[in-house]
């Protein structure tokens, strides 16, 4: 089993209102088979035994689907690998002697809770504004009543697989939530079940994002480059079209 020795520079911040700083933590003897989070577990177990407080970080499923984990590693959201969440990033992608700068997502809308943990409730607010189909339980017709072309369903699925981790926001120089938002707008706009509310949805979600303090899109494409689910910015283009249709084509608002 190969092992490497690393030096971590980790963001430590006690609470939202406290001042943060980078702390240097040695991480010796890291197995290259470990995931990035397992490496942090090892460092944390040592800190605990030394009577220090471990580094707080969010994580849950550790198989790249819950969207709970994430941090900037040397300035890159979820680290250097493409299409990979932090929990699925393995230490074999680093070299012996590397220094890793580990910081939380930075955005006005994502306040630091502690160390690497941030508050992403703004995403929930955006979804609550309109990221759903208003179909209450019990009234649905037969599932096969409306055919949906396979290609349409596949494209909707490409967007729907967003895990809401926030890497897009953290990677964007404007801290924009456009990729996140467009993934939901696009998914529901493509499906026939989502069409009746399409205009209202896009307007409400954009308004909510503005209110939460997310920036605008200036086509940097950093979000697409770092999205662990490789969601394409063509969904932002579709959202923009939906927006134009809503503004010019709808009687509402």
């Amino acid at each position: 089993m190969a092992t490497i020795n690393l030096t971590l520079k980790v963001w430590r911040q006690k609470g939202q209102k406290d001042k943060g700083r980078l702390e240097t933590l040695p991480a010796p003897g890291i197995s290259t088979d470990m995931s990035f989070l397992e490496m942090l577990d090892v460092v944390n177990e040592r800190l605990t035994l030394e009577g220090k407080e471990p580094v707080a970080f969010d994580h849950d499923c550790r198989e790249g689907i819950c969207g709970m984990c994430g941090a900037m590693v040397n300035g890159l959201a979820h680290g250097p690998e493409r299409g990979t969440t932090l929990c699925q990033l393995h230490m074999r992608h680093f070299r012996d002697g590397d220094t890793l700068m580990i910081e939380p997502w930075r955005a006005r809308a994502f306040k630091v809770v502690k160390d690497l943990v941030v508050d992403r409730s703004a995403f929930d607010k955006i979804i609550a504004a309109g990221g759903y189909v208003s179909a209450s339980t019990g009234g649905a017709q037969d599932a096969n009543a409306i055919p949906v072309p396979m290609e349409t369903a596949e494209e909707a699925m490409d967007a729907a697989q967003c895990i809401g981790c926030g890497a897009c926001v953290a990677s964007c120089p404007n801290a924009s939530a456009m990729l996140f938002m467009s993934a939901k707008v696009s998914h529901l706009a493509l499906m026939p079940q989502g069409r009746p509310e399409a205009a209202r949805r896009v307007l409400a979600m954009l308004r909510a994002a503005d209110a939460c303090g997310f920036g605008n899109c200036s086509n940097e494409r950093e979000c697409e480059a770092k999205c662990p689910k490789e969601i394409k910015i063509t969904h932002i283009a579709r959202m923009n079209r939906e927006y134009m249709k809503a503004v010019f084509g709808s009687a509402r608002e």
């Binding site: 179909a135 339980t137 649905a140 017709q141 599932a143 949906v148 396979m150 369903a153 596949e154 079940q193």
Partner: peptide
């Protein structure tokens, strides 16, 4: 069966055949 009906009504992009059926 009602679960599938409801989930489709909510816009879940389930896998489909070329004819557009589930």
């Amino acid at each position: 069966t009602a679960i599938i009906d409801h989930c489709v009504a909510q816009g879940i992009p389930f896998a489909r055949d070329y004819g557009g059926l589930l």
